[in-house]
Design a protein around this nucleic acid. Sequence first.
DNA 1: AGTGAAAACCGTAGCGT
DNA 2: ACGCTACGGTTTTCACT
Lengths: 165, 165
Amino acid sequence: MTSDATSSGDLDRYHIAILAELQSDARQSNAELAQRIGLSAAPTWRRVKWLEEQGYITGYRAELDRRKIGLGVLAFVRVDAERSAGSATKALEDEIRQLPEVIACHYISGTGTFELQVMATDLDAFSRFSINTLLKLPNVKDIHTSFSLGEVKAGGALPLTHLQG
Amino acid sequence: MTSDATSSGDLDRYHIAILAELQSDARQSNAELAQRIGLSAAPTWRRVKWLEEQGYITGYRAELDRRKIGLGVLAFVRVDAERSAGSATKALEDEIRQLPEVIACHYISGTGTFELQVMATDLDAFSRFSINTLLKLPNVKDIHTSFSLGEVKAGGALPLTHLQG
DNA sequence: AGTGAAAACCGTAGCGT
DNA sequence: ACGCTACGGTTTTCACT
């Protein structure tokens, strides 16, 4: 990497306001954004471009209603790997990355455990996925599933309160 | 609710293509989007508006690099509630919803357990947060924390493969 | 439904402060 | 570094097929 990955010191309150605004609505016009943060259009636009170039903003994504598109089941799955280090685990990571049903996967400990977030149309489809796909992946010892019974909070907007708060 | 929440039957391949495109880049111009899905600009625009109005698209969000903005720690926290039903749990939900450090929270079982995703600047800040805030919430029995040691897959794009795939 | 054109708006660059 | 102005392109609407 060319620069420090954890240097957020060069963000002023306008940068922070832009990040907050674009996190809640990425499709507002630059004019609208400028007005909301209290700057005129040109410098606002320059700052947005700068935030993109520096890698603070990594992309813009539409958020979909998972139930409307037929994904009734969201599950948190802990996958225990047989061996926790080496090429076997790397291979397992690569396999997991390929699965569209897995929307997130984190390596969470030294004991070879992954935490996955899995989407499926219904319980039946999830069942088939875990038996036919997950449990057949190389180096998988076993899995523990917890289903989401309700979303108390979602939408994953990152807190910015620690910046100049 | 006014209409069926799980009816994705009125989506044709253009709708699906639009959802896929906007999930990967929500800021592309309508002209670009139209060209990619193989339709001209006006009908593409109407379809996008329709998807927004029907609630398939719930919003557009900028994705930020959590490390660049100083959030070095991501943790998965299981919160066990004292009593699993009634107003005490509802109150706990409301408290959790208020915390900016908690970016996601799901109710995951009948035993009064929540799965949280928590962001913090560093281990020290996380430690303070769990001791001073999480453990002091009403109706919390105990918590189990797993730290993310690496993101194998992230970015939470929903699979659309089950639609007319 | 999709097409094509027209008007309003916005993004973008350059210059002045 | 911010703000203003002006141009070129895009979004967005509307009338027509």
